[in-house]
C-alpha cells in the first residue's frame, strides 16, 4: 500500500486533517456550534459549484465561499447574541440553496460530486501543499490561542471579563474553521468534514479529565480513524471519506460500550 505515491500523499493529508479538524472541533463543539461544520461545508459546495460555473479553481471558490459564510455567521451571531445557533442555520440554508441552484449549471457533474464525498486518493502535490500550509496555520492558532479558545468555550462573558478580546478572537477562529473546512471538503468531502469535526470530540469528551486531554484525545482519535479508514478503504475497495467517518462512529460506540461495561463492573 505504501509503495503507491498517491497513498503516501493520502496518508500525509489524512494525518494532518485528522489532527487539525478535531482540534478546531473541540472549540466548535464546546461553543455549542456543532452545526457550523455542516453550514460551512454546504457553503463550500456552493463555492465549488460557483467556481466551476465561473471557470475558476473550485477550491478557490470553496475557500472564498467558506470565508464569506464564516464572516456572515459571526456577523449574524453578534446581531442575535441570545440565539447564536440561528446564525449557523441561516448560513447553512443559504449554502444549501445556492449549492442546489448552481449545481444545475455545472458543466462537469462528476467532478462536482467528488467534492461532496471527497477524493483523498487523488490529492495533487499542489493541494497537499495548501493542506500542509492551512493545517500549520490552524495548529499555530490553536497553540498560541489555547487560553483564548479555552475561556471562550467555557463562557464568552467569563472570557471577556478575564480580558480576552472576544470579538477579534471569534473572527480569527471562524476564519480558521472556514479555511480548514474548505481544504478538507476537497479531500474528505463536504458532506463528511463536519462529522470529522464532531465525532472524535464526542469520543474525547467521554474519556478526558481535562481540556488538554480533550484536545489530545480528539486529535489522536482523528488520526487513528483516518489512517484506519484509508487502510480499510484501500483493501476493501470502499470510498475513503465515508469509511473514515464510519470508523470514527464505530470507535465512539466502542467507547460508549466500554464505559457502560466499566460502570457495571464497579
Amino acid at each position: 500500500m505504501l509503495g503507491y505515491v498517491f497513498m503516501q500523499r493520502s496518508l500525509l493529508v489524512g494525518v494532518l486533517l485528522g489532527i487539525v479538524i478535531p482540534l478546531v472541533g473541540v472549540t466548535v463543539v464546546l461553543k455549542r456550534l456543532s452545526m457550523i461544520g455542516d453550514a460551512l461545508s454546504h457553503t463550500s459546495l456552493a463555492g465549488v459549484a460557483g467556481g466551476m460555473v465561473a471557470g475558476v479553481n473550485p477550491v478557490a471558490g470553496a475557500v472564498t465561499a467558506c470565508l464569506a459564510g464564516a464572516l456572515c455567521i459571526e456577523a449574524i451571531r453578534r446581531r442575535f447574541r441570545e440565539q447564536s445557533e440561528l446564525a449557523v442555520a441561516i448560513v447553512m440554508a443559504t449554502g444549501i440553496g445556492l449549492a442546489g441552484v448552481l449545481s444545475g449549471f455545472v458543466p462537469n457533474a462528476s467532478s462536482f460530486n467528488s467534492f461532496m464525498f471527497g477524493s483523498i486518493l487523488t490529492v495533487s502535490p499542489e493541494e497537499t501543499l495548501s493542506i500542509v500550509a492551512i493545517s500549520a496555520l490552524a495548529l499555530l492558532l490553536c497553540a498560541l490561542g489555547h487560553r483564548e479558545l479555552f475561556l471562550m468555550s467555557f463562557d464568552e462573558r467569563h472570557a471577556r471579563a478575564a480580558g480576552v478580546p472576544t470579538d477579534v478572537a471569534n473572527v480569527a477562529f471562524v476564519v480558521v474553521v472556514a479555511l480548514v473546512v474548505a481544504v478538507a471538503s476537497r479531500t474528505v468531502g463536504s458532506l463528511i468534514v463536519s462529522s470529522m469535526m464532531v465525532v472524535p470530540v464526542a469520543c474525547a469528551l467521554q474519556l478526558a479529565r481535562s481540556w488538554r486531554q480533550t484536545c489530545v484525545i480528539a486529535s489522536l482519535v482523528g488520526v487513528l480513524t483516518t489512517v484506519l479508514g484509508l487502510v480499510v478503504s484501500f483493501y476493501a475497495g470502499l470510498k475513503p471519506g465515508g469509511t473514515i467517518v464510519l470508523m470514527a462512529v464505530a470507535l465512539l460506540l466502542l467507547v460508549f460500550l466500554g464505559k457502560k461495561l466499566a460502570s457495571l463492573a464497579r
Binding site: F150, F154, D155, G163, S210, Q213
Partner: peptide, 25 residues
C-alpha cells in the same frame, strides 16, 4: 457573571485549568 447551566454540563476542564486560564489579563 450568571452562567448558563449548559456552559458547565459538558465542559471538560479541570478546576485548576479554569482558575489558571482566568489569569489571562
Amino acid at each position: 457573571p450568571q452562567l448558563p447551566p449548559e456552559a458547565v454540563s459538558r465542559f471538560p476542564a479541570s478546576v485548576f485549568e479554569l482558575v489558571d486560564a482566568s489569569q489571562y489579563a
